[in-house]
Design a protein around this nucleic acid. Structure first.
Lengths: 207, 207
DNA sequence: CATACAATTCATCTAACGATGAATTGCCTC
DNA sequence: GAGGCAATTCATCGTTAGATGAATTGTATG
């Protein structure tokens, strides 16, 4: 019986530790937000010593950045939002509706975004990240797709409506929104988005 | 020179401590959310010993409840939303627009609500509170004001739009929404609310 | 084989948090 | 003025967090 008292030191074979940490961190950050997700918890979730996280990523903030920089979110939203460029502006609203429906269809993305919301709500840096993310990855595409003088405002209005639905559904679980099929929801909200994009929003443009 | 080494014991005069704690707690909870607002910080803010909070309110959770039960929020929103009963349904949208404009005009209310949002995002109990608050105090009034088969859904849609704007403006500070005058915003959003309340939202009712 | 480096664990530090109980002081009533 | 209660502070407990440095073990390189 070889007593293996001290299991210290490097393990044989390849070490997927880094990726395990990233995966665990994304799960924890997503589910609990930046503050409530602890390094120790993440380490436990990854089956790893807490010190290893510092070894790989340094401070918690760096881990968070590394986690959220993972391309998944951007590419996922990129697919969902499709390439709006070159589309007939009059049909973008409908395209957005379908995009939103797809957004709700995938249970993973809303949870990830909800985690971002949780983080953004408490963490100023998280708020900055979400702001930048929405600004560039989402609203920027819309603004260029529907060029106008107040494109920024239009995109922001669209974002606020989708965002409000997201929070109401995923974070607050406010009925009847929470358990409503995505397509129905998209049908209700579609005209709103279309108007925000190409309609009269009281600024003298559009209509 | 009487050395007053020990400043222990009751202070002379009346003690506005309880109210001071409540005020400080509201500020802290509002600005930082339930988790990040610490008892010690609240006590320091109120110029008071941390143990006094426990003396008056017990656990942190009780303090939070006491803070958020303060009637300000309910009455403020009651005034803002005016009594929608007896109004011509066709004009409720406009009334809501004005209400929303007033909502943004007062800098206090959005900050309070933002605090609730911060709490609701991380704290399950906070989410429940906000859910209930929105459900009863806000959406309930709307639903009864515009009776229809899908009144709940209509009210929830209205809520999601206003809510999205609130978060975008106050929490995320997303431009150009954040620095937009309330009236302009209300003008942009008014038709959306009107349609949600009395228009065709794809459920077979309204139009 | 020796050396360097990466991976891993252990033990520990410091700071902050919520909470509690005892001690002290003022106010009010009898 | 004696008791009782409310208000206040102090000291402290137990927990948890993030962070660090040393020690140990594997892998690669010369």
């Amino acid at each position: 019986m070889s007593e293996r008292r001290s299991r210290r030191g490097r393990r044989p074979g390849v070490s997927g530790t880094r990726d395990a940490i990233l995966a665990a961190a994304r799960t924890c950050f997503t589910e609990r937000g930046y503050d409530r997700a602890s390094m120790r918890q993440i380490a436990a979730f990854a089956g790893v010593d807490p010190a290893l996280i510092h070894h790989y990523f340094g401070r918690k903030e760096r881990l968070f950045l590394a986690t959220m920089r993972m391309p998944d979110l951007d590419t996922a939203l990129g697919q969902v939002l499709a390439p709006p460029e070159g589309l007939d502006p009059g049909q973008i609203g409908e395209g957005l509706v379908r995009a939103v429906a797809r957004l709700w269809a995938d249970p993973e993305l809303p949870r990830t975004l909800a985690g971002l919301v949780r983080t953004a709500a408490t963490n100023e840096q998280g708020a900055a990240m979400l702001r930048e993310f929405l600004g560039h990855a989402v609203l920027g595409r819309l603004a260029t797709a529907v060029p106008s003088e107040d494109a920024d405002l239009r995109a922001a209005l669209v974002g606020s409506q989708i965002f409000g639905l997201l929070v109401a559904r995923v974070v607050l679980k406010l009925e009847p929104l929470a358990s409503m099929p995505g397509e129905d929801l998209a049908r209700s909200v579609g005209p709103t988005l279309q108007r925000y994009l190409t309609g009269d929003i009281g600024t003298g443009t559009g209509g």
